[in-house]
Nucleic acid binder design. Structure first.
Lengths: 204, 204
DNA sequence: AAACTTGTCAACCGACGGTCAACAAGAGGA
DNA sequence: TCCTCTTGTTGACCGTCGGTTGACAAGTTT
């Protein structure tokens, strides 16, 4: 059937294979939406069988998450606030870091966000991140606790940010600093409208 | 096999059947998410075969859209602005109407929004609505044209509104008027932050 | 070279959205 | 009463999806 010198498949070390799958997976998931990629197609793209993919990862969702963990880690460390700064400065620099990351990887960002919002399992994950971010912001601005209005204002603002970022990378008719200032202004405006202006040095 | 007095199925008039499907479809789609409902299950729930469902509607998406068109129409007419009012008053009353509709049908609203973000076909539909709404608002506030920043501010604000509404109907710790004022304040804040405060009578 | 571990795959499963030829319910004419 | 014809209706099917399984084969050990 098959010449002996041409084995049916190439055997790889587990770690090596795993690394290969994660790397190719990251490429694929950042250039295509989650629901555009079937496990069969990913497997075919890598040159293995679908069953082998499932041997290394328990589900498509788990593969997606592991594939993105490096990316998520990069995001987390770049937006980690410097505790020596004031809350407002922390927010500004985190926001700046976030926006520049988005700007550098806009295609990947859009695909990730759309993948993330496109699948219900992933949506819960995003919801969790949003929740944690909201808490980080609220804790930073209101160490003594926030009102319900302020909470709604902040979580609404996070949606605003997603929408604005998507519009931004689509039209690209705004500089990053302008968008950052717009976002900051909106957050402040939202908190003022919520009747809970944060205790901050004046924003001139 | 089967007694003659017990026909295999009941034959219905086309319009009657269609109306039945739309009615039951509206019930199902407002009480479950889009991706939770398979066409087979809908058919079984109504008591017909899946093929018959496809005889009346060309696709699941089309069925979903037609099913919701009555709802969408209700929304449209209730938020139709009264042209005799000032732009700000138009916005206020439309917003009030929208929020009360959401309040009355909170489960349906949540399912719709979640369906909308969960399914790409539906997301495009919602995107279209958002776009149209943004244009309506921008045309009302800036008859002579709006800046890119103002456009981003408004479309971001629409995301804010959805996020805030979801948080609102989840926690219900805010009165509708409070949320309405918060939303209005945020919109104004966003437009001011965008450097394009609308030409309106002063908001005291 | 035989035994053993384990990386790998073809074949399969149930469920999905969607299609199609063919059956049968029921109205009209004889 | 029977026959016919229209058309509402269906069971069986397709390709693809995410996910599973039993068995083969590559590589290692003795």
């Amino acid at each position: 059937m098959r010449p002996m010198s041409d084995p049916a498949y190439r055997r790889m070390d587990v770690d090596e294979r795993r690394a290969q799958l994660l790397e190719r997976g990251a490429e694929l998931f950042t250039s295509h939406r989650y629901d555009e990629l079937s496990m069969s197609r990913i497997a075919a793209e890598v040159g293995i069988s679908k069953a082998l993919l499932y041997h290394y990862f328990p589900s498509k969702q788990a593969f997606f998450e592991e594939t993105l963990s490096a990316w998520a880690e990069r995001l987390r460390e770049r937006t980690e606030p410097d505790p020596s700064l004031s809350p407002l400065e922390q927010l500004t620099s985190s926001l700046d870091a976030f926006l520049s990351l988005v700007e550098e990887n806009s295609v990947a960002y859009r695909n990730l966000i759309q993948s993330a919002t496109a699948v219900s399992e992933i949506r819960e994950l995003v919801e969790t991140v949003r929740h944690a971010t909201a808490r980080r912001i609220l804790d930073g601005l209101y160490p003594n606790g926030a009102t319900p209005k302020a909470r709604i204002a902040v979580s609404g603002w996070l949606w605003f940010m997603d929408g604005a970022c998507l519009a931004w990378i689509e039209h690209r008719d705004l500089k990053r600093e302008e968008l950052r200032d717009l976002l900051l202004g909106v957050l402040m405006g939202a908190l003022i409208a919520a009747g809970s202006p944060p205790d901050l040095p004046q924003v001139s």
